[in-house]
């Protein structure tokens, strides 16, 4: 019965086969995520009947044709992905999938990290998340009720500083989680360095790397549904539950500060979800009006735009000194 089955390995530069895979996933009401390094398909003759992809340590875009279920194709695929990544020295793997796949993924050696109503995050090395939480705990300054802000800081501006300083004034401790994902214009290391320099005058502020479990590609399942709203909804649920249930608990976080978002629809949606979910974990959400200059909210995207256009001098009044110096040094 397995005689006609074969496997194919598709690298990210194989547009034709990726398009075919995407088409197959759409028949299952799933979306193909362009951010994948490897896709493995099982074919019956020439027809794709099962697929799985991976981006670094995250396995995603898993789908099996309805007529080919209960034949162990998922076992074959996940085994192959594990082996493939193993050869690249990627050992610890994560999967985000629909909740109904929980049992089968569990039987393949993965354990639940966090589950929401619709989706689940599972990993084959549970120590990874525990270690992450331990590292987070190491940042604890004092055992007092604290506040948190999650920011990309791409790069840090006076708008961010306004929010941070307000939180610092109103709280005994403030932890700032910087989104680690290196998909931003300003590299993570630079964002981290500028944030530390920009906030060094604030004694009760601690900068922490967000890592894999705060707004990362690991908590970002972009393919669950054609319906973007549903996808954003699932992603927000998972991300905020991880934060509320585990991360905030480690640092005794009772308030999360956030800037009001005047431009970006996705951020507005995320902020609203925050107000809905975090109070379930006894965390208050404090939304602050953005700092404006000349009737316009100061934003990092404005700074990046000015930098791209070479208007470095105009950046000066929008950012802390360290950020300005960074752009000057880049110009030389």
């Amino acid at each position: 019965m397995f005689e006609n089955f074969s496997k194919e390995y598709i690298l990210s530069n194989n547009k034709k086969r990726r398009e075919k895979t995407s088409k197959f996933l759409r028949t299952l009401n799933l979306n193909f995520d362009e951010n994948t390094n490897i896709t493995i398909n099982i074919l019956d003759g020439k027809k794709i009947v099962a697929t799985a992809s991976a981006e670094k340590n995250l396995i995603k875009c898993i789908g099996v044709d309805k007529n080919y279920r209960s034949k162990g194709l998922m076992n074959t695929l996940i085994s192959e992905i594990i082996r493939y990544q193993y050869e690249k020295n990627i050992y610890d793997l994560s999967i985000i999938t629909k909740i109904k796949n929980k049992d089968i993924i569990q039987s393949l050696g993965f354990e639940t990290i966090c589950e929401t109503k619709n989706i689940i995050l599972m990993e084959n090395n549970k120590n990874k998340f525990n270690k992450y939480l331990e590292n987070i705990s190491d940042n604890k300054l004092a055992n007092v009720e604290s506040s948190a802000i999650v920011m990309n800081l791409n790069p840090i501006t006076k708008g961010h500083m306004f929010l941070i300083e307000k939180a610092a004034k109103e709280s005994q401790q403030v932890y700032i989680f910087i989104v680690s994902e290196d998909k931003s214009k300003v590299p993570f290391k630079t964002r981290l360095k500028l944030a530390k320099e920009g906030t060094k005058h604030l004694e009760n502020v601690k900068i922490i790397e967000g890592g894999d479990y705060i707004i990362s590609s690991q908590t970002f399942p972009t393919y669950f549904s054609k319906n973007v709203d549903e996808w954003i909804n699932n992603y927000c649920d998972l991300d905020l539950k991880l934060f509320g249930k585990y991360i905030a608990k480690k640092l005794n976080i009772r308030k999360r500060y956030v800037g009001k978002e005047p431009y970006c629809e996705l951020t507005t949606y995320y902020n609203n979800k925050m107000k809905e979910i975090l109070p379930l974990y006894k965390i208050d959400v404090v939304e602050i009006e953005r700092l404006e200059q000349k009737q316009k909210a100061i934003s990092a995207s404005l700074v990046r735009k000015l930098a791209e256009e070479g208007n470095i001098s105009q950046i000066k009044e929008l950012v802390p000194e360290a950020t300005y110096k960074y752009y000057i040094s880049k110009e030389d």
Binding site: G72, N75, T76, I78, S79, E80, I82, R83, Y86, Y91, S107, L108, G109
Partner: peptide
């Protein structure tokens, strides 16, 4: 080194 063999297919062991 860390090493792996086998699969998680039926009748196999990883």
């Amino acid at each position: 080194n860390r090493a792996i063999s086998g699969t998680m297919e039926s009748s196999d062991i990883m």
